[in-house]
Amino acid sequence: MSKIVVCALYRFVRLDNYEALRGPLLALMEEYDVRGTLLLANEGVNSTIAGTRQGIDAVVAWLRSDERLAPLDTKESLHDEINTSNEKGLRIPPGIQAELGKIYAEQQNPEMAMSMLRAEMETYPESAVLLQRVIDQANGGQ
């Protein structure tokens, strides 16, 4: 089984024709079996998707082919750390999952944010006081 890549991406830009992008994008994601949520709106695109290396590259390349989305920001390196640690049976380095949790929270992705923060607390119980505080604040702020 090939390795799954998780990629967070966003770009805030005026997309007047965002509805027209939906069809081709969905078809491309289905073709490559890329999963996840991709938000398209007239203020931009914001997403976390998962799939094979080729699949993620294809979706990112398709988005970047639109000049408004060319400067798209993507984040997968932190996930690489997690994948490498898991493959080698090593403990995931401290803070990686917490940082990812923070990034997901900033991208309005509470499910991924919570799962990352919980994973950090499980790996490093001494982070619990701080991270629980972050979670409580996020819940209180909604």
Partner: peptide
């Protein structure tokens, strides 16, 4: 600061959050 102390075996609370 995080990496040298983490490599030395300490849990450094995530800097960006702190």
């Amino acid at each position: 600061l995080t990496v040298p102390f983490a490599d030395h075996g300490y849990y450094v609370l995530p800097m960006s959050i702190v």
